[in-house]
Simulated assay, not measured.
Amino acid sequence: MGETTVAEAGGDLLADGGVPHAVLDLDWLRQFWPSPPDDRFTFDMLLRNLRNLRSIAGNYLDAGATSLVLAGVIEQQDGRKQLAHPIGVDLTVCRLWAELLVVHGLGRCRDGGLGVL
């Protein structure tokens, strides 16, 4: 929860610094139902779609982006390598930590409730 918001904030910081970039939400490449019991974030579907992501990332890089901000969940340590190799760029992974009350607030906001962030 919150990875897209943080990625967008990172994109804003890059823009403020004059850094050409693109922000891509990996959730759209893993949308699949039902998710397998052993892959709740459908990471395998994301890996299947990486050829598409490489083309999309290449388009941004060809247009002048020097940084790509990817929003998504990586549960396993080797997931970083699995993503980086097909995309063709080095990845820096940022782990999000939040107080439990903040996480619950994000969930209420997503569900249309009154969450406080």
Score class of each variant (00 low, 15 high):
Met1Gln: 13
Thr4Pro: 00
Thr5Asn: 09
Ala7Gly: 04
Glu8Phe: 15
Glu8Asn: 02
Glu8Val: 10
Gly10Tyr: 14
Gly10Lys: 01
Gly11Trp: 08
Asp12His: 08
Asp12Lys: 08
Leu13Val: 14
Leu13Ser: 12
Leu14Trp: 05
Leu14Asn: 01
Asp16Cys: 07
Val19Glu: 03
Pro20Ile: 05
Ala22Gly: 15
Leu24Cys: 12
Leu24Thr: 06
Asp27Ile: 00
Leu29Ile: 02
Leu29Pro: 00
Leu29Thr: 01
Arg30Ala: 14
Arg30Trp: 00
Gln31Tyr: 10
Phe32Met: 11
Phe32Ile: 11
Phe32Val: 14
Phe32Ser: 13
Pro34Glu: 11
Pro34Ala: 11
Ser35Ala: 13
Ser35Asp: 07
Arg40Gly: 05
Phe41Thr: 13
Phe41Asn: 15
Phe41Pro: 00
Thr42Pro: 00
Phe43Glu: 11
Asp44Asn: 04
Asp44His: 02
Arg48Tyr: 10
Leu50Ile: 14
Arg51Gly: 15
Arg54Gln: 08
Arg54Leu: 07
Arg54Tyr: 09
Arg54Trp: 01
Arg54Phe: 02
Gly58Leu: 08
Tyr60Ser: 03
Ala63Asp: 09
Ala63His: 03
Ala63Val: 06
Gly64Ala: 10
Gly64Ile: 02
Gly64Phe: 06
Gly64Pro: 02
Ala65Trp: 13
Ala65Asp: 15
Ala65Arg: 03
Ser67His: 13
Ser67Asp: 03
Gly72Pro: 01
Gly72Val: 02
Val73Met: 13
Val73Arg: 03
Glu75Thr: 12
Gln76His: 12
Gln76Glu: 15
Asp78Tyr: 14
Gly79His: 12
Arg80Lys: 13
Lys81Cys: 09
Gln82His: 08
Leu83Asp: 06
Ala84Leu: 04
Ala84Lys: 03
Ile87Glu: 09
Ile87Asn: 07
Gly88Thr: 05
Val89Tyr: 06
Val89Leu: 15
Arg95Asp: 15
Arg95Ile: 11
Arg95Cys: 04
Arg95Asn: 13
Leu96Ile: 13
Trp97Ile: 04
Trp97Gln: 15
Ala98Arg: 01
Leu101Arg: 07
His104Lys: 14
Gly105Ile: 00
Gly105Glu: 03
Leu106Cys: 02
Gly107Ala: 11
Arg110Gln: 13
Asp111Trp: 13
Gly113Trp: 04
Gly113Asp: 12
Leu114Pro: 03
Leu114Arg: 09
Val116His: 14
Val116Cys: 08
